[in-house]
Simulated scan of single mutants.
Amino acid sequence: MRGLVLLLILLARPVLAHEFFLGDLQIIHPAIPATPVGARSAAVYMALSNEGDEDERLLGIETPFGRVRFLEPVIDAAGNTEMRERAWLDIPAGEIVLLARGEMRGSLANVNRPLIEGGELTGTMIFEKRGRFDMFFMIDPVESETEHDPVSQPRAKVDETDRARDIADIARALRTALDAPQALIAPIALAGDMAIAGWTTGDTGARAFLRRGANGWNVELWSNDSLLLPATLTSLGVPRTDAGRLLAEVEAQETALGQAFSTRFDAFPGTAYVTGEQE
């Protein structure tokens, strides 16, 4: 077992998460922004990380409002950007593919009821090789029109891609430290080279503190709500501005995921420091 010996890992009922596994394919935070009053369409976002040796193809996503359209920004000869529909989404082996602002995205029409922040929407993803997979979308905070526009946000692609890679790397580092490949890692909050991530195995869970080093993300400790104290983050060398961003993002994400997550993390007994080299 790498790193710290984990206390107890119990088998229990499944819990909500913003990450799903389908073999070696990770579906990271499938989400839809809350819809403003009167809206009849919504964007669909997620990251798909294919850690296997074979390419995969997402053929479609079914929801109670109908199928999700895959739209890709294309620049024409005149330099104008338009969104063109694609019939499927390729997920090459060893790569992360995004449905995100500024690049390929999902679009859902015929939304005939409000989508409220913090709620969920059921869906079924249809893969060429893995078949049908039932899942759900988290309803994230409403986004502005500027955030929704791929032309006016030229940095979004880089930022979203880097964030998706960090999320995948953090989840991998935390599962390695736990020696628990199927641990649920949610939520993940980032600020520069620091991160706070929640982990759950059965009824056991905690919040972990990670730091990016020369060889990637490393888990330093996991704890309960004491990790959310500004003094704790200061003692870990987190600058005040980064600490504020981390705590605000943790609070927002845990609120969206539901009180059960925060309650489980708060109940962790004390603080456990991770020792040993992590791969």
Rank of each mutant, 00 (worst) to 15 (best):
R130Y: 01
S144V: 06
K157I: 04
E160N: 15
V142W: 09
R113D: 00
S107N: 00
K157Y: 06
A156Y: 07
M138L: 14
D134C: 03
I139E: 03
D140Y: 06
E147G: 07
F137C: 05
D149K: 00
N112H: 06
R155I: 06
E147Q: 05
K157N: 09
K157E: 12
E145V: 14
D140Q: 05
F127M: 09
N110C: 00
F136K: 11
R113H: 09
F133V: 01
I139K: 02
E147L: 08
Q153S: 12
G119R: 05
S107E: 04
K157W: 05
R155F: 03
G131V: 14
F127L: 10
G131Q: 14
K157V: 12
P154Q: 09
F136T: 08
D140E: 10
I139A: 07
I139L: 14
K129F: 13
G119S: 13
R155N: 09
S152T: 10
P150V: 09
E128P: 03
V151L: 09
L121W: 03
V158L: 15
R132H: 09
G118V: 02
Q153T: 12
T146H: 05
G118W: 02
N112K: 03
E147I: 00
E128F: 10
S107G: 01
V151K: 04
P154A: 01
F137Q: 05
V142M: 15
G119P: 10
I116P: 08
R155E: 12
P114T: 09
F136S: 14
L121S: 06
E160M: 12
T124M: 11
D149I: 03
L115I: 03
G118M: 04
M135Q: 13
G123R: 02
E147N: 08
L115T: 06
V151G: 02
P141D: 05
E120V: 12
F137G: 01
P141K: 06
P114A: 07
M138R: 15
F133M: 01
V151P: 03
P150Y: 11
I116H: 13
F133N: 02
S152E: 08
G123S: 10
T124E: 12
M125H: 05
E143R: 13
E160R: 14
R113K: 10
L108A: 00
E145W: 07
E120G: 08
D159V: 11
A156P: 01
L121E: 09
E147F: 05
A109I: 04
V151N: 02
N112T: 03
P141G: 05
M125I: 13
E117F: 09
P150S: 03
S144R: 10
G123D: 02
E160V: 08
T122M: 14
I126V: 14
E145K: 05
R155L: 08
S107I: 00
K129D: 15
G118Y: 09
I126P: 02
T146R: 11
G123M: 15
S152M: 06
M138A: 14
K157A: 13
I116M: 13
M125L: 15
E147V: 04
L108V: 01
T124P: 02
